[in-house]
């Protein structure tokens, strides 16, 4: 079952072709890793999928629907959620509020319901708090729930970023370098959590990551990018043994 489809994506910035002829599919409950050297087009491709860039050519299809022209917020509401490469924690908001912000279809976000503070608003908030507590406990951020997010360490911010994205209850989670700046012990637990979420909650992941070892451990499929295109695609073993990928990383001619 295909969940996400990229068809012939192309994106240029001025004279630079950042992404060209990128096509691939992500199956439901699959974990797909995206690797490639700096400038390979990973981040641009990621933003095309999340809707933060519009492609010059090509389409993005999610769950059978062409979402190429949808705004990022509409994609999130359909279950396609992204994180940010540099943790974009909301510094002037508390950790708990960062989490609660991500809950979807919150009735309290309507002005009149918020002003009346109706029982459905309070109930929803209560349920959301329970979910947020569970996630914060797992990420070891629960004791920091009343801190301003700007006071967290770099690694804690990455965790909050992940927790917030999970709070949005995605079908497909786009993770942009989730392991950067997280200590090895926690990296292990994060990888385990990602696999658990896939197994127990049928979630699907697309992970852009520089930590090749981590990617190889969790991915079912790895996409190797170079110069804006897909250079190699297959199982972790296949991509790892692809000579062209090695060349790409070492900077040789491919």
């Amino acid at each position: 079952m295909t969940l996400l489809e990229a068809n012939g994506l192309r994106k240029t910035f001025g004279g630079i072709v950042a992404v060209e002829e990128v096509s691939f599919e992500v199956d439901r409950t699959e974990i797909v890793g995206v690797i490639g050297p700096n400038g390979a087009g990973k981040s641009t491709m990621f933003k095309l999928l999340a809707g933060f860039h519009k492609p010059d050519e090509g389409t993005v299809v999610f769950d059978g629907e062409d979402i190429t022209d949808l705004a990022p917020n509409d994609r999130t509401q359909r279950g396609l959620v992204r994180t940010f490469q540099i943790a974009q924690e909301l510094t002037g908001m508390r950790v708990m509020d960062n989490m609660l912000l991500a809950s979807q279809n919150n009735p309290g976000e309507k002005v009149l319901a918020a002003a009346a503070n109706t029982s459905s608003v309070r109930d929803f908030e209560g349920t959301a708090r329970d979910r947020a507590e569970e996630l914060l406990q797992f990420l070891e951020l629960w004791d920091l729930r009343d801190e301003y997010a700007g006071n967290l360490s770099g690694g804690q911010r990455k965790l909050l970023e992940l927790g917030r994205a999970l709070m949005a209850d995605p079908d497909l989670l786009l993770l942009d370098e989730p392991m950067a700046g997280v200590n090895p012990d926690l990296t292990d637990r994060l990888l385990q959590r990602i696999m658990d979420l896939r197994d127990e909650r049928d979630m699907t992941f697309l992970v852009v990551e520089h930590d090749i070892e981590a990617i190889m451990r969790i991915s079912d499929t790895v996409i190797g990018m170079h110069d804006g295109g897909v250079l190699s695609k297959g199982t972790p073993e296949e991509v790892q043994s692809d000579e062209r990928m090695l060349e790409a990383y070492l900077g040789g001619e491919v």
């Binding site: 917020n73 510094t91 002037g92 991500a102 917030r164």
Partner: peptide, 15 residues
């Protein structure tokens, strides 16, 4: 408040 802090984030979170 999220818009005040960084309006890309609420956008990415479906708002």
């Amino acid at each position: 408040h999220a818009i005040r802090e960084n309006d890309d984030v609420p956008l990415a979170l479906g708002k």
